[in-house]
């Protein structure tokens, strides 16, 4: 097997609510991310897409399964070496740019915090230089380093969040709905910036979102999640040109087009798990092509691919 940057095998993340009730937020998900590529995770709220991101970066401790990052297992007990490896090589961008920046710290210090924690500079000048360089890249002035987060607009704050992640020169960035809290005109700016920085720095992205049109734009490959199961995965072309799973189809049909004549006639394909007769736990992965696979039983797979 070729070496992947990140490999997730049968990841399970359960939350015990009470003695009788356990939420299975993520129930056996496997996928991989190669170096420098963007993997988009889509699904509705409650599908477990944010949980996966958080389990990988170890904000949660996975219930079961294996996560390999650059060949190092990061799902079990973390020793000092693994922790350092994980914390420097993998970074996260959060959804709400106001909530994730410390309001009492200057922006320059927020951006440099990762460097401070891991002692990644020799002297204060080098630290300063690194901060200025990344701020220039994301389109902020040097003077902005001495300001506080509340003095920035939403789009600028999200840029600060991106700068803080990328100053560590990570191999993998987990972006948890990085644009859903932003205005339309600003969304495009942030997505373009993320794409440009990826080209420059060669980082891979795990891009979590529910806006399929943006995901299509930024991703190389896509995974569709529903109720904690990865129901379909493939390249962006596979998913958009030849969706097989009924949930993927329903999700694609719900994406609005900016074209009134098409839009006025269109109705979304309904999908209801309970009445569909599909049991995700019974399915296994069937390969449609080398890159494209779908979660189904043998009978379902035959039926879906026949159409």
């Amino acid at each position: 097997m070729a070496e992947h940057l990140l490999e997730v095998e049968d990841l399970k993340q359960y939350f015990r609510v009470s003695k009788k009730f356990t939420v299975k937020a993520v129930d056996g998900v496997s996928f991989y991310i190669d170096e420098g590529e963007t993997y988009g995770l889509v699904g509705e709220s409650g599908s477990g897409k944010s949980t996966i991101g958080r389990s990988i970066i170890r904000l949660y401790t996975p219930t079961a399964g294996r996560v390999l990052f650059e060949g190092v297992e990061i799902s079990g007990h973390l020793g000092a070496a693994e922790t350092r490896h994980l914390r420097t090589r993998m970074q996260m961008i959060f959804q709400d740019p106001m909530a994730c920046l410390n309001p009492r710290k200057k922006v320059g210090d927020i951006i440099a915090q990762g460097l401070d924690v891991h002692h990644l500079y020799v002297n204060a000048d080098e630290r300063q230089e690194k901060v200025y360089r990344i701020m220039e890249r994301i389109g902020l002035d040097r003077e902005h380093a001495n300001r506080y987060p509340h003095q920035f607009s939403g789009g600028q704050r999200q840029r600060i969040g991106i700068a803080r992640a990328l100053i560590m020169e990570p191999k993998l960035v987990i972006a948890d709905e990085p644009i859903s809290a932003l205005d339309v005109s600003i969304q495009a700016q942030v997505v373009n910036l993320m794409k440009d920085l990826q080209k420059e720095l060669g980082a891979a992205y795990l891009f979590i979102a529910h806006d399929l049109s943006m995901v299509k734009y930024i991703s190389d490959r896509i995974g569709v999640l529903h109720l904690g199961h990865l129901v379909e995965t493939g390249t962006t072309k596979d998913i958009f040109d030849r969706p097989l799973h009924p949930y993927t189809k329903s999700l694609l049909s719900a994406v609005p087009h900016p074209d009134p004549r098409v839009e006025k006639q269109r109705t979304a394909i309904a999908y209801d798990y309970k009445s569909s007769g599909i049991d995700y736990t019974k399915g296994s992965y069937h390969a449609v092509s080398e890159t494209h696979s779908v979660l189904a039983t043998d009978e379902e797979f035959a039926r879906w691919s026949a159409r």
């Binding site: 339309v184 994406v255 609005p256 087009h257 900016p258 074209d259 009134p260 098409v262 839009e263 006025k264």
Partner: peptide, 8 residues
């Protein structure tokens, strides 16, 4: 602010 919604 979603033009897709507007179109619909």
């Amino acid at each position: 602010h979603d033009l897709g919604v507007v179109a619909k």
